[in-house]
């Protein structure tokens, strides 16, 4: 039996709930893009916040915040069959408790933990290389295109850190953005799908001082390198080229 869910984490969790109450062997897949196959029975599930919450509480009580956040990260990795691996891990956690995370004897779990590592690595990297631009309206705006769906994982960091600023972090690839002002964070509703993938700095314009600070940062970036140690390979290894597009010191060459 295959359960089709709406693609959200909440939807996934409520599918997990239904899967546990179902007698059969169940797989969980995204509804969008699902190709009907012969001989497989599918059920389209409604997302139920109550069911999702019960699963969350259950998992928290078994494996704590740390374990739970590992599960979230694996789901958000959006790697191929991420749902399957997340579901497998959730089942193991129900069975073995926190020990499930170190079952390296289980290949699927090792793979799931590999996804988790990729996600947390990308989070660590992005916390450093995300760049804010001050827009004409005073909002500090940071566009980016992460490999994994990490926007929900990084906002907490900036919530604490840039409490005194209005800011917006925008996943241009997925068309999601979070806006912060005076201690409140909210999802940004874009007027339409197309706008959700546009760089707001182009749309709204930059503040008066913005180019000066960007210029000084670029100058500093150049001057800090030691000539006799130049090593572009090493630089790229730490700072993969695919991220340069939005980095003040790296874009435009």
């Amino acid at each position: 039996m295959i359960f089709l869910y709406d693609g959200t984490f909440e939807g996934f969790l409520s599918a997990v709930f239904d899967a546990f109450t179902c007698k059969e062997d169940v797989a969980i897949e995204k509804r969008e893009g699902w190709q009907p196959q012969f001989f497989t029975e599918t059920t389209e599930l409604e997302t139920s916040p109550e069911k999702a919450e019960r699963v969350v509480n259950k998992l928290l009580s078994i494996c704590g915040r740390r374990g739970f956040s590992a599960i979230v990260q694996i789901f958000l990795s959006e790697e191929e069959n991420a749902e399957t691996y997340t579901f497998h891990l959730v089942k193991s956690v129900m069975k073995y408790g926190s020990k499930a995370f170190s079952r390296f004897q289980d290949e699927k779990i090792t793979r799931a933990m590999e996804f988790r590592k990729r996600v947390s690595k990308e989070c660590d990297k992005i916390l450093g290389i995300l760049r804010f631009t001050e827009l004409a309206n005073g909002v500090f705006y940071a566009p980016f295109e992460p490999d994994h769906n990490i926007l929900p994982l990084i906002t907490g960091h900036f919530y604490e850190r840039l409490s005194g600023c209005c800011w917006m972090i925008h996943d241009i690839r997925r068309g999601n953005a979070i806006y912060h002002s005076k201690g409140k964070m909210e999802n940004v509703e874009f007027v339409d799908e197309m706008t959700s993938h546009l760089n707001m700095a182009d749309l709204l314009g930059k503040s008066e001082n913005e180019d000066d600070f960007a210029k000084m940062w670029r100058g500093y970036f150049k001057t800090i390198a030691i000539e006799t140690r130049i090593n572009p390979k090493l630089q790229r290894q730490f700072m993969p080229q695919r991220y340069w597009k939005y980095m003040t010191e790296k874009k435009n060459g």
């Binding site: 660590d124 916390l127 450093g128 290389i129 960091h157 604490e160 850190r161 840039l162 409490s163 005194g164 600023c165 201690g183 500093y220 970036f221 150049k222 800090i224 390198a225 030691i226 140690r229 130049i230 090593n231 572009p232 390979k233 090493l234 630089q235 290894q237 730490f238 700072m239 980095m247 010191e249």
Partner: peptide, 30 residues
């Protein structure tokens, strides 16, 4: 810790913000 209305917080493990052409991490304005 960061404080409400303030700017900044520290991150225990440290954060690298960029890597210069010599491959060394840039974390602080040095």
């Amino acid at each position: 810790k960061g404080v409400e209305g303030g700017i900044g917080s520290a991150y225990r493990a440290g954060i690298c913000h960029s890597w210069a052409a010599d491959g060394r991490c840039i974390s602080l304005l040095k």
